[in-house]
Every structure is written in structure tokens, then in C-alpha cells.
Design a protein around this nucleic acid. Structure first.
Lengths: 346, 346
DNA sequence: CTGAAAGCGCTTACAG
DNA sequence: CTGAAAGCGCTTACAG
């Protein structure tokens, strides 16, 4: 069973019904002056009875100097609360300018990322915010991006210059590791996303450098990385903690899904008061779990807002040198990061 | 400081560079046959050197019978993990059809919802998924929606018929309440979103009816509702539990933010093993908190997928009678919902 | 106050 | 295999 999709009414249909020229209808639709009250009324009646809705695409086609009507956002995965909060922040800024946000998930696939960038260009977005997977930038560095402004978020490609907003991943991870070192821990593990991902790489570097500077050893078997969801992390951490010939006394978890999986495993194994933990990203109920999880929160919504402000600055024509905005919140101590070195652990 | 936004290259620019007619360029861009290999190569070189990207809007303007290129999603708030997971499910389905999802948050404001519906119509989306705030439907019932298919998600307007996918809020809340009643609880409170919101209203009704059927009293002072974030819920529940002349022995929390705030308050006041709790929606770390939080999870990503499947079915021309798909997961018992009636509580 | 013409960047339908 | 014409639904620029 199928139905023929009816053609939507156009300016001409309305004009015919109202017995005026279609240019007059255009005037009424756009609230332009120079139409008598009687005619306005007649046109409006016709619009309503026909259910006329102007075609945005046709409208923008002829207009060259019109305000931005949509921006794009290439993120990693909307179902990750970090990114959905960023999206909300971006939406906040866009909404104030009557602008729509087109967003889609790359799943950290460079091919998909390229497709999305090109799709957004085809839609003629006024600009875009991109979370670049890695140093692969595809169309973002090529001729095709032209004068469409781009703001990088969360990740920062090596070679390419654009406005950038992100958390200071490196400093954050150092702070987290230093915090554990200050409690006397030397045997500190690291659990995080694949280091080939820019943000994850920096977080690992922060951990590693903090360890080196303190003269503490980074042992390969205490570094767990990869791209996993919270359930895979749970299994991974459980097996790791169960089978390790020697366990660290503390761990740094470098991302929200990692933390959720790790916390679950640690609690299952009854190690919650034995294995110290400091986590990147805020997590729901992190303060209710016993002990509370010490976290270095990010401010995702604020990141999204700032990215939006920078982007619209460019759209409005700013030619300032690229801004590089690194943000860092302060550590929230809740207990898990302040556990002393446990004798039973080593 | 400002810069003149450069005009993007068009088919004609490419044609000039490649020394062919613009129609030939169009053929190459669309991979149509009937162009000699030499010419194809020349055109492709010109496309790349100019950074030509076809204008999607212009393309669709003339095409009447082209596949869906975008669908709309009016949700309540992307930063709510429930909705962002739904969005991801919808994106999964849309992506397989090379289709973009335009989404925006209504914040449960009917005026904003109407604006979004109209904005999507202006963009000529092939269809949309809508979480209708309340019985206000605005353009959704009027002439202007025309033949643009709509699928309702999460909420279900009284009067208006469309495909619908949602959790069975009523049955879910009954199940939750019955579970507490089965443990011997009679004094059961309800904490939830404003009942004027469709889903919240149904959840309250499920609670109320379960109570009535069991001959248990619904006391006004044990019903807390309103539109709050998790922090406001935390304060509200803390004050309520602190000042209540008589506390219930159990509560039903009817939404994720409510639960997070309530759990925090309950733990702060040392009531976690005294006040039984069953919660709507899955929450991170709900299994790690002590006692674990008994929840009735939803399957947001699956809801999004199903909504997408129904929507594309309509877009493809289905004229079947509207589908009404209610889903219900089973209760996950973790401890908080299995606490016995506490003598210290009443 | 109102309208006829040209054009936005493309596709469709037709011609050579 | 290639191209000139007409048209998609609008806006701009000009005329009365």
C-alpha cells in the first residue's frame, strides 16, 4: 500500500486563492510593508486555509546575505552524556540566533567523519563544530571547506589551526595522578580510551609524566586501554583485577564509561576501600557510592556554549587569530581518591 | 574586523574551468552515464581544484521524487540521557538511509514546540518524531502538517492519531508500586515530574490506582511533583524528609533526575536502608550504590529505533492504520525496592 | 500600494 | 556522447 505524496502549496497557490500576484504573497509572508490591510487579510486567510509553509531551501537559494540558519556538529556519539551535554550548550547559543544545529555521530570513524563534514557542506551550514577523531582531517584541510568556519572541540589536530575549545586533558590527568601520588601511592594504574584518540592520548601523557616526575614506575600491565563500552570495561577490569599477580594501589580512570565499568568491578570484588581511584568526568551518583568517587569534572554544556560563541564570532566575520581555549575544573574530593596506600593491596 | 564571505563555486564555475557545459558537470557529479572518460577526468580535476560541493538545497528543489534526506526530532531536552539515547536510536535508523536527523529541545514549552515543528516543515523534512509536551498539538493537527508523517514518542496526545512508540508508563508505575506493596509497604510516597506532562501523569495514575486497588491511602503530603533538575529535587526531597511529621516507608521515583536527587537526599539523611525505593529509568551506578536501586528500566535507544522504523515506513508510503506500540521492561531488583517496612520509619 | 522580469543552483525533459 | 531550454519556489531589483 502506498500513497502519493501530495505537492505542498506554493506562493503561487496562495496567490491564486487570494487573487493577488505571488509577489504580494511573498510580501505578506515576509512582513514587508507596502500591502494594504485588506489584501493582507485576504492573503493570510488563503495561507491558513491552504496550510502554506514557505520553503526555506528556495528562500535561501536566492538570498546571499541572510543570517545563519544552520550550523553542523560532528560529535563522537550523542548517547554519551558528555557529548549530549555539549550539544545542548551549542543548541543554547544557536537557538538565541534562530539557528538549527545539525548533529551526527562519527563513532570515531574517520570515513564517517568525512562523510558528515561533506554532508554538512552540501547543506550549506554557516559553520561547524567538529570533534576530530584523530589527526585525520580529510575535507577539513582541503579546498572544499572554503570559508566555512570550523571550531574544534574536545580534540585538537596537530597540524591544523582553528578555534578550539576543550578541557585541558593533560593537566587534568596530571592533577589526578599527582593527587594520588600525594596520598603516598606509587603503584598507580591507568584505565582509558585508546591513546590514538587525541583526548585519551593527552590524558595518558599527563598520567605518564606525573609518574615519571615523581619517580614512580609506569608498568605496562597496569595500563589498560581500548575502545569499549561500560559493560566491556566492567568485564575487562574485573578480569584484570582478579588475575593480576600484583595489583596497583590506585588507578586513574580517564573517561566516564571507563569509570562506570571500573567502579562496578571494584565493588564486586570488594576492593572499593582498598583500591584508590580518581576519575575523569562527572558521573551521576558518584557522590552517593561508598566511598564517593573523587572526580575531575568537565563542564560539557559550557564547552558547547563557548564553541558556539566562537563559531558565531567567525560567522559574523571575525578574522582574529585562532583562539585556543583550554579549560580545567578543580578536583572534587569524595573519598575514593583519598584512600591511603593499603597494605593488603600490593 | 570582518571578511567578505566568498561565494562558493557552482556548476557553472566548474564547467568554465573544465571547458564543458554545466550540464556535463551535473552528469559527472551525479555519476550519470554518457560522458566520455576524458571529459570525466577533466571535470573531476576542476571540481577538486575549485573545491566544488553541490548545493543540496538547489538539488532537492527541482527533484520531486527523491529519497528522504532529513527527518526532524522534537524532543524535550537532549542533555537528558534518556532523550539522547532515543536520538541515537533514531540516528541509527536514519543513517542507514543516508538521512540526517534535525533535532532540537522544546524544554516542554508548547510555544517552542510549535516553532520547532514549523521550522522543520520549512526545511521540508520527510517526516518527524515528536515528543508532545501535553495535549497542545498546535500545527500537528492543523492543515499545515499536510502529508508529512509524524510519529509520537514517549507521550501520547489524547485526541490525535499517529503512530506511537512509548514505554507503558502506567503499567510500569503499577508494577513498581505493586512491588512495594508486595513487600508489605502501605505508606508509599510518589516523587515525579509535573502530572500535566503526559508521561508523568500516567505514571502517577499507575501509582494511584495500584494504591487504591490495594486499599492503601494516597496522602497528598507524600506526593511531590514539579519540574525540577536533579539539584532542585535533591533539596526538595531533603527538606521534605527532614520536616515531614510522618514519613512514608517507601517511595516511587518516577524519572531519572528525580531518582538521582532523591537518592542523594536519602543517603545524606542516613535513610537508605530505611526508606524503600523503586525508580523509573536506569541510572549509572544504580547497581553500585548500597543498597542497589531497584529500577524499571526503559530502552531508550530501542524506542528511537522503532520510532524511526515506523516513520520511514510512512515515508515509504505505508497507509496502514496507526500503530500504537507500548513497551515494558521487567523490574530489576537490586535491594532498595526489597527493603522491609521499617519500624523506625513511620 | 502592486506587479512583471530576472536569477539563485540545480534537475528534468527534450533535442541533436 | 553533449548541450540548450524550461522550471523548482522563492527573492532581488526594477517598474509602474
Amino acid at each position: 500500500m502506498a500513497r502519493t505524496p501530495a505537492r505542498r502549496p506554493t506562493l503561487r497557490d496562495v496567490a491564486e486563492r487570494a487573487e493577488v500576484s505571488f509577489k504580494t504573497v511573498s510580501r505578506v509572508v515576509n512582513g514587508e510593508p507596502g500591502v494594504s490591510g485588506v489584501v493582507v487579510g485576504r492573503v493570510q486567510t488563503a495561507i491558513e486555509s491552504l496550510g502554506y509553509v514557505p520553503d526555506e531551501r528556495a528562500r535561501r537559494l536566492r538570498q546571499s546575505t541572510s543570517p545563519a540558519t544552520s550550523i553542523g556538529f560532528v560529535l563522537v556519539d550523542v548517547s554519551n552524556p558528555f557529548f549530549s551535554a555539549v550539544l545542548r550548550g551549542l543548541e543554547d547559543v544557536a537557538r538565541a540566533r534562530q539557528c538549527l544545529v545539525l548533529s551526527a555521530s562519527s563513532d570515531q570513524d574517520p570515513v564517517r567523519q568525512d562523510q558528515l563534514v561533506e554532508t554538512f557542506l552540501q547543506r550549506r551550514v554557516a559553520g561547524m563544530v567538529v570533534v576530530p577523531c584523530d589527526d585525520h582531517l580529510g575535507p577539513l584541510t582541503s579546498e572544499i571547506i572554503q570559508d566555512v568556519p570550523v571550531v574544534y572541540l574536545d580534540c585538537e589536530p596537530k597540524e591544523h589551526l582553528n578555534d578550539l575549545v576543550r578541557t585541558d586533558h593533560y593537566a587534568g590527568a596530571r592533577t589526578m595522578t599527582d593527587h594520588l601520588l600525594a596520598q603516598g601511592h606509587r603503584d598507580i594504574g591507568f584505565l582509558g580510551d585508546d591513546p590514538s584518540v587525541f583526548s585519551a592520548g593527552l590524558r595518558f601523557a599527563g598520567y605518564r609524566d606525573a609518574m615519571h616526575d615523581a619517580g614512580a614506575e609506569v608498568r605496562d600491565e597496569w595500563v589498560l586501554t581500548g575502545r569499549h563500552d561500560q559493560f566491556a570495561w566492567h568485564r575487562l577490569v574485573r578480569e584484570w583485577l582478579s588475575n593480576a599477580p600484583r595489583r596497583p594501589t590506585a588507578v586513574v580512570t580517564a573517561q566516564n564509561f571507563v569509570t562506570i565499568g571500573a567502579v562496578r568491578a571494584v565493588h564486586e570484588l570488594g576492593l572499593a576501600r582498598t583500591l584508590a581511584m580518581v576519575a575523569f568526568d562527572e558521573i551521576d551518583l558518584a557522590d552517593v557510592v561508598q566511598p564517593g568517587i573523587t572526580v575531575l569534572p568537565q563542564e560539557p554544556r559550557e564547552l558547547g556554549r563557548r564553541a558556539g560563541e566562537l563559531l558565531f564570532g567567525r560567522i559574523d566575520g571575525s578574522v582574529e587569530p585562532p583562539t585556543r581555549e583550554l579549560r580545567l575544573s578543580t578536583l572534587v574530593e569524595r573519598g575514593s581518591g583519598e584512600l591511603p596506600v593499603s597494605v593488603t593491596s600490593g
